[in-house]
Amino acid sequence: MSDPILEVRNLKKYFKTSRGMLHAVDDISFTIERGKTLGLVGESGCGKSTTGRAILRLIEPTSGEVIFEGVDICKLSGEQMRKKRKDMQIIFQDPFSSLDPKKTVNQIIAEPIRENRIIRDKHKREDRVLELMETVGLAERLINTYPHELDGGRRQRIGIARALAMEPKIIICDEPVSALDVSIQAQILNLLKELQESMGLTYIFITHDLAAVNHFSDDITVMYLGKIVEKAPVEDLFTNPIHPYTRALLSAIPVPDLSEKRRRISLKGEITSPVNLPDECRFAPRCYECIDRCRQGIPPLVEVAPNHFVSCFVHS
């Protein structure tokens, strides 16, 4: 029954900086089943966006394999990769900088169709644009407006329509709702969910909002400083979080519910810089359960329960 659409193996992305090697993504592996959603969560700077971009080869990974439907796309030539892009799309976080301000809604949505010569006829292309606009809930009359005339929610819908234009199989959603108001967030999340059901899409859902990821994903991968610390099906992760970081993260979400008074695990300090990291557990400097062993090496990702992986010396 297992049908992985995408498999990431030992993906690494290092950036050269003036202070040394920055380990943005450091040896991560995961698999996504077709039609499912993988949530990728973690704090700012932990390498979520870098992972998403490296998978699409918008930035070249330092090393590792990205196997999409059995083909390692990191080995494809420029021209072959361009063809593959049809199947893999991305929705960006910032609906204000991800749309070209000089292009109309029509031009923006039609661009991928024209660029990949999917529909050559201008009128047919416009019909397709209108169809896509309807799919994402944009009124027809907006077809000739410019993005700056629209609000964040509508702009994000344009981004979604554009991503859908090439009928991709997998979409990487890089914080698609973080920049939006609560009531608009819910509209967009519902839209993404409906699209997934009707088109059988696979999502990688990048976010720092655990409540949203809980609602949206099937599996969750928690990242800390470029590494995966815990990986599990959603229910498991929320009912039985194991890694100290995951537990702290879950306890830190403010919940708008007065009946629930939880004990908060508060972490010392802040996320450290990912430059020139020592050879120890990435979380050790902030960890409240840290033992000597944690300072002596990087813990491997171990399966502690079926499909539940944790990278922690204390808990495995």
Partner: peptide
């Protein structure tokens, strides 16, 4: 009410979000 209904419910993850329609 609309604000509360727009928030994903941490306890019941299958509950459908009920966004406020339209815009400010």
């Amino acid at each position: 009410e609309g604000l509360f209904n727009s928030l994903p419910n941490v306890k019941d993850r299958k509950a459908k979000l009920k966004p406020i329609k339209g815009l400010m």
